[in-house]
């Protein structure tokens, strides 16, 4: 079984968000870059399955659409345990464009499972997996919180509002994963970091593809009014404010 995991290179989730060029571009000064948290969990889960059932998964490849500066993040994925990496040398400006690039990779080299995080923590597109599956005419299961391979068949659970469904699918398919798929993201070991250097990271040029959307500007949310503090010995006052001032209870 071969697995492809789509990874996005995003600012660390604790980054203070600022914009430059008259609020048209994200300020990357001093930003630490990480593997998108959902993608990292997907990779962790794929490795857990690979380790638990030797021989079932022969290869885990990660793919990223990004310029050369995303390579440290891709190397981290290799250090965590991916076998190979592909970087498509283009700026990931629009999800349709990114999906077009990754679809091309899947068309050339077949994979049994393609895994995407449900969204990326930067532009929150939340559309890559769906777009990819439609481009490839493959089934997709979204909001997957449990993924396993049992007797050669894929076992899946997905989150629905107020519950969970167990879903069976034909292969190949696209899993769009949600939190819960793995408990904690795996941390690269020293050996992993050393071996990552010799694992294949192939850079390929993008194919021609349309951009259907474009960001033209950004805003920071308006600063909130200061928090109204209530004396802990007068909790009744909070209820009074919520009832009479905020009119919410």
């Amino acid at each position: 079984m071969k697995i492809l995991i789509c990874i996005s290179n995003v600012p660390d989730t604790t980054t203070k968000i600022k914009f430059v060029n008259n609020n048209t571009a994200f300020d990357i000064a001093g930003v630490q870059w990480i593997i998108n948290p959902w993608d990292e969990l997907a990779l962790t889960r794929a490795l857990e399955i690979k380790d638990a059932q030797p021989g079932i998964i022969e290869n885990i490849t990660v793919v990223n659409v990004g310029l050369i500066d995303s390579e440290p993040t891709i190397r981290k994925a290799l250090a965590i345990g991916a076998d190979a990496a592909i970087r498509i040398n283009a700026e990931p400006k629009d999800t349709f464009f990114v999906a077009s690039q990754i679809a091309e990779v899947v068309r050339k080299e077949s994979f049994d499972i393609v895994i995407c995080g449900i969204e990326s923590s930067d532009y929150n597109g939340a559309a890559l997996g769906g777009m990819l599956s439609e481009m490839l005419d493959l089934p997709s299961v979204s909001a997957v919180s449990h993924l396993d391979v049992v007797n050669g068949a894929v076992e899946l659970k997905r989150e629905i509002d107020g519950g969970q469904e167990t879903v069976a699918t034909q292969l190949p398919f696209i899993a769009i994963i949600q939190k819960g798929i793995a408990k904690d993201a795996r941390i690269p070991s020293m050996r992993g970091i050393m071996t990552a250097k010799s694992k294949p990271l192939t850079a390929v040029e993008p194919i021609a593809a349309d951009l259907l959307t474009e960001f033209v500007g950004f805003d920071l949310p308006k600063p909130k009014a200061a928090c109204k503090k209530i004396d802990p010995d007068n909790v009744r006052e909070l209820v009074n404010l919520l009832h009479n001032e905020a009119k919410l209870i």
């Binding site: 997996g129 769906g130 997709s140 979204s142």
Partner: peptide
């Protein structure tokens, strides 16, 4: 979850740009 799953596929099916969230 369901909105994201269908909207993203529909975007490709119709080649219609998608703004999420």
């Amino acid at each position: 979850n369901s909105g994201k799953a269908i909207a993203s596929r529909l975007s490709v099916r119709l080649k219609a740009g998608l703004a999420t969230g």
